[in-house]
Design a protein around this nucleic acid. Structure first.
Lengths: 360, 360
DNA sequence: CGTGCGGATGTGACCGGTCACACGCATGCA
DNA sequence: TGCATGCGTGTGACCGGTCACATCCGCACG
């Protein structure tokens, strides 16, 4: 019943190329580092050195060992390695969501960069910013099997986890601009410029002011809102109250209805493209044309936004690049090296069809 | 009180006076199972039994041990456990994509179910169906640290990995209907009924036939296409040639342009909602109204599709449920139990605004 | 010729759990 | 009383790597 693990590594002085019959039919035995060492006529440590590209191995020995590895189809056991070193060679991403565009793209960028580096990738969703959920997530990634930790801290739950992480854990974070007081490498996409630019774009078209629907993660000082305020202030335009929406499309739709009912609203800066979609629907239902009656701008640049009708003017955000940068950051933490300089593609306004001069 | 790491140096009197028996640099003094055993006055094995909810522990001992665990904030080391048992308690998802709606939702369902079960979740993207990429992915998940394996095999790359997996690996798959000859639990969402229903819906509105834009993963015998063909055949309608599109929105747009230029096209069944978006754009550019001139139906039911203008008639697919089912399947594999019966929410047509009778 | 040195390699302990099995002891039954 | 049974528990080996340190060897130098 039990697939008997048999080892019996040493002592065998045979050189018969014939494979030893498997211990239990059905369960094939995977070669271990000791098997490779024996076959190559060296010690396990030497094989280990070859695997870890240590310089203290002669070229000839290295070649021999590599040949045996190839012949035996040997693959080092990640679990054993992690137990020996005290930490897994990989990263675990902590996030409160895996499907919203910003989160999913960041995750994609992380996965890609990690794969290139030969790192394993784990995912752990933190359910909310309640203490129990946060502690569970923090406990989870405190385990050595988690490897390095990357927290997607765009929201309260993520930030809470970031704060709850043990000091000693190698970690980095992707954050919204304005998140401070986190004693860890934290990288963000600074959208303030682009947000201001989007607002100026609308103003330049002749709109008297620009309304703003905020995403949940947005604070007064975060990039989107700060840029918007700044541009309005610079133009001497009125700053309308911020309308807040949730992550769900329905709440954005509700927000849209409020704005659609207001004849003074001619331009709307939406916190993301999903909100723009719902706001556009609300305007449509109110009989208002986009961009004829009301102009809208989104954030994110979701795939397909150029195929909307009308094509959406939006701020493209390189979340994948952000994700890649966090991998570099956590890798540096893991190696105890100084943080590398990051250069991210800055968010950029893409003007398409959903913005136009106001009807006069 | 403080649980110092115990080192088994019996009376080892060496002459290093400076070094206090402190943990290695970079290592934390995290309590181990031996610390708990010592503090509780039992053996490690007894602690292990408590951790694994073994029935062979007296209630009193169990309570004592649990108290000590709580007091010491002990957390079992997942790496060590995996090394001891020969396999990690977790699942690794192999997929060729993480952002497309079907893949991402399935992944989300898997993550959720796994988290509930206390399983770790890993992700490994397989770059293509080329042999090297497939073997790398298969090698990756062959490592015991991967735990159980779930392959999202909606496409050629996924199917190839599924086939390349060692027989002995505990694995399950989420597949398109019609994928056969895989000696593993393979679960799918049978969309044939819903696809036929969608086609019948269009026919009943008065359309003479229904055109179809296929997603890349679709074969002649897959559910979407089979249902569509069946409904057309049953109604005695002509079966137009299938137009194929890629995963990128641009290629769907190109497909849409071809159909938009054809005056005989009045109803289009799109392989997914992204395609529907692009086709709708192409129709718009050709001066055709949806649903006035042409009706369109999508697949997936992406969030927000009810807020499109017009709101999209589509087939809702419960990918998250599919993902959850694969977790149950792989858990059964892991435990050597028979496969549980699966009951998934079947795909379901949701009629909204994008379908209407043809103009006469 | 003895010694120091540094590169290449090997050895035993260790990481923190689990597994197989042995053991002590109370109980049931012949 | 003898012995099988079973429960609760403990012991040593083991999983497959890495770490720290020891060892071996050739060579330059005093």
């Amino acid at each position: 019943m039990t697939p008997a693990r048999q080892t019996d590594h040493d002592g065998d002085v045979n050189e018969t190329p014939v494979e030893v019959p498997s211990p239990r039919p059905g369960r094939e035995t995977v070669p271990s580092i000791r098997d490779v060492a024996a076959a190559a006529g060296v010690s396990r440590q030497t094989v280990s050195r070859v695997l870890n590209a240590s310089p203290k191995v002669s070229a000839e020995t290295r070649r021999t060992v590599m040949e045996v590895i190839e012949r035996l189809q040997y693959r080092p056991n990640r679990v054993a390695r992690a137990l020996g070193t005290g930490r897994a060679r990989g990263v675990t991403v902590v996030t409160s969501d895996t499907m919203l565009y910003g989160y999913a793209s960041t995750l994609q960028g992380i996965e890609e960069a990690a794969r290139v580096e030969g790192l394993a990738v784990g995912v752990r969703v933190v359910e909310s910013d309640r203490e129990g959920d946060v502690r569970n997530a923090a406990d989870y990634v405190s385990d050595p099997s988690a490897g390095g930790v990357i927290v997607i801290a765009f929201d309260a739950a993520g930030v809470a986890v970031l704060r709850a992480l043990p000091e000693s854990l190698p970690a980095a974070a992707a954050v919204e601009p304005g998140v401070l007081g986190v004693a860890r490498p934290a990288i963000c996409l600074d959208e303030q410029q682009a947000s201001a630019e989007a607002t100026r774009h609308l103003l330049a078209l002749g709109h008297r002011t620009v309304h703003h629907v905020a995403i949940p993660s947005e604070s007064e000082h975060s990039g989107r809102q700060a840029g918007w305020r700044r541009a309005l202030a610079e133009a001497g335009a009125a700053v309308p109250p911020v309308v807040r929406a949730g992550w769900d499309v329905r709440s954005a739709y509700q927000a849209g209805r409020v704005l659609a009912a207001d004849p003074g609203v001619t331009a709307i800066l939406c916190g993301n493209d999903d909100i723009a979609l719902a706001v556009r629907r609300a305007l449509f239902e109110a009989g208002k044309d986009v961009p004829g009656d009301v102009s809208i701008v989104g954030f994110d640049g979701v795939p397909g936004s150029e195929y909307w009708t009308p094509a959406l003017t939006t701020v493209e955000m390189d979340f994948a690049g952000l994700g890649r940068a966090t991998v570099a950051a956590v890798l540096a933490e893991l190696a105890g090296e100084p943080q590398p300089a990051v250069s991210l593609t800055p968010p950029r306004l893409v003007v398409r069809e959903s913005t136009a001069p106001p009807r006069r």
